[in-house]
């Protein structure tokens, strides 16, 4: 069994060597004449404005959390799939109950509208004389979130 992972180790070593050798050889053959334009972020002439680190929409976080939970479910399917042929209907019904439990959670998520992709409020960077780049929220006051996930406490 360890030898199966040995081939994975060989792949890892080959991957590291491939990148290292490619970078080293290109360092040997390429000319080295940098200037300010070449070293800019987008060499094609696009001027970068603002910071690359923006605050991401927290909807990605919910998607990530859901991914993690369903990934654990998928992982537990693997041992089940290995013994499914031997145990037959017993294994099938056991896994059916398990998957159904998580399916309830999925229905809950769907029903509360968490999978609905609300329009985010775009923050447009703008250059203000004397101040620099500011990010202006172009969403008006009327554009309240259409969905708050259905969980409005009154």
């Amino acid at each position: 069994m360890l030898s199966d992972f040995g081939s994975i180790l060989l792949f890892m070593i080959a991957g590291v060597l491939f990148v290292a050798i490619a970078l080293f050889v290109s360092k040997l053959v390429r000319p080295h004449r940098p200037n300010a334009d070449k070293l800019s972020t987008y060499e094609c002439g696009e001027e970068p404005i603002g910071d690359a680190r923006i605050q991401f929409n927290n909807r990605f976080y919910i998607i990530g959390l859901m991914f993690l939970i369903f990934e654990v479910e998928i992982l537990l399917l693997f041992p089940w799939a290995m013994v499914f042929q031997d145990l037959g209907w017993y294994a099938f019904s056991a896994m059916f109950v398990f998957v159904f439990l998580i399916f309830i959670g999925f229905i809950y998520e769907l029903g509360k509208g968490h999978l609905k992709w609300d329009l985010p409020s775009p923050a447009v960077p703008e250059y203000v004389e004397g101040v620099g780049v500011v990010e202006r929220d172009i969403r008006t006051e009327d554009d309240e979130f259409e969905s708050d996930g259905g969980l409005t406490f009154k």
Binding site: I69, V99, K112, H114, L151
Partner: peptide
């Protein structure tokens, strides 16, 4: 194994509840 299923269900609901904006 089945309790793990229940735990995952609770985790889904808890994560969604915590991630939801609560309007006062």
């Amino acid at each position: 194994f089945q309790v793990t299923g229940v735990l995952l269900l609770v985790a889904i609901i808890g994560a969604l509840l915590m991630a939801t904006k609560v309007k006062h």
